[in-house]
Structures are given as structure tokens and as C-alpha cells.
Amino acid sequence: MVLSARGLGKDFAGFTAVNGVDLDVEHARIHALIGPNGAGKTTVFNLLTKFLQPTRGRIMLLDQDITKVKPDKIARMGLVRSFQISAVFPHLTVLENVRIALQRPNKLATQFWLPLSSLDKLNPRAEELIADLGLSQYRDTRATDLSYGRKRVLEIATTLALDPKVLLLDEPMAGMGGEDVATVASIIADVAKTRAVLMVEHNLSVVADIAHHVTVLQRGEILASGDYETVSQNPQVRTAYMGTED
């Protein structure tokens, strides 16, 4: 088990957003978190990555208790997240975006006395990541000028630069055209061969295609959990979630 949560809960001024959530994310598997709007999926993400502090429960990452650890430390421990709104550095080039992620692990982040050219030695690795995700021709394009789909791909490239043990993707396909969805889905499936992936996704056909395990959230609590077949046959899920979806 790479990442697990037990009895996770979060209250916002009297309102219980998440309650009693148990999750187990395994190596080399894609775990999808689905549920209607307002079910608490993003809150669970924020709790797991410590952007929010849980009110109740315990989180374990690689056998270490991370319930009280800060978000930047979590990232250094190998749990890296993406955001619902594409998280790129808009006025930096594609290469620079990926290099930002490479700077810290390569101990090239605090030197204020070195020239920018000192970062050039990170270029081969950055270019490799960019090439892997098919962005080579946009190497020197500023992120803001990329299409929406490519911004999301760049975000994944940047995340992979940290070589994370666990990847948390918050709606990686949101707002994408059909073509981009297929590309990103295959990238995620590929990435998950060597690391654990937990993703929030609304696109159920993608979930059916690539997720090994599905957890359904409703009003902050787990409604069902299992493989896609089992979950989609669950009558409660059908009425509560799938029913409203069609």
C-alpha cells in the first residue's frame, strides 16, 4: 500500500464536507474517485496533499504517518498533485516549466549567485520528459500560448519530473475535447505502470477504460468501492449517481 487514509474527515464551520473516508491506493494501479458535484472529491484531495488539515482521521504515505506534515514536505516525500484548474507557470516556456520541477531535486533552486545558464544542465532531462509527452515542438513556447489540452499535458510532464511515487490528478480531462481526452488517458495509463495514481474524474468512459479501482463518494462519505463493474452494478450508486448522470 503506497497511500492510505483511515476515517478521514473535514468540517468547515459546522458543515461536514468529508466524513469517515477510507482509501487505499496501490502501486502501479489507477484508483478513480468519482461522485456528483459537491461530493467532497476535491476536499479529499486537499486533505491527502495537506493543502487542508483534516479534522479527523489518519493518512499514511509509504508507511509514514503524514497526517500533520506540510504540503511542500509531502511533495518531497513523493506524493505530487495536480489541480482542477490547469496549473502551469503561464509566462514561462514549456522547457522552463518542467525545469522548475527539476531544480529542487537537483539542488539548483537556492543559488542566487549563479547565472541562469547554470540551469542548462537540466535541459536534457527536461527535454526527455517533454518528448515523452509529445510536446517537443513547443519547447520554447510560453505555457499561456498552449491549447488547453496541451497545458494539462505540460502539467503532467512537470509532475513527472519529480518522479513521484503517487500521482494525484484532479479532473485531468475536465474541459478537454475528445481527441485530447484519449491522449491524456493513454498518458495516464502509461504513467501508472510504474507508480500509483489517484484521480478525480467525471468522464466515466475514461474511468471504465483505465481505472483498476473505483471509489464513489456522495455527500462526503463513501457510497461504494470496488472495480468499475461491481461499482456500476451497485443499485445505490445507480440511483444516486449514475441515475442522475444519464
Partner: peptide, 16 residues
């Protein structure tokens, strides 16, 4: 620069 552009993202990449 990256902090100015997107602070949350910089945190999520492990920067204090």
C-alpha cells in the same frame, strides 16, 4: 518567478 506566477503549484512541487 514561479511563486509569483502560481504559488500553489510551486508548493505542490515541493518548494517551501
Amino acid at each position: 518567478k514561479s511563486i509569483r506566477e502560481n504559488e500553489q503549484r510551486t508548493v505542490s512541487l515541493g518548494y517551501a
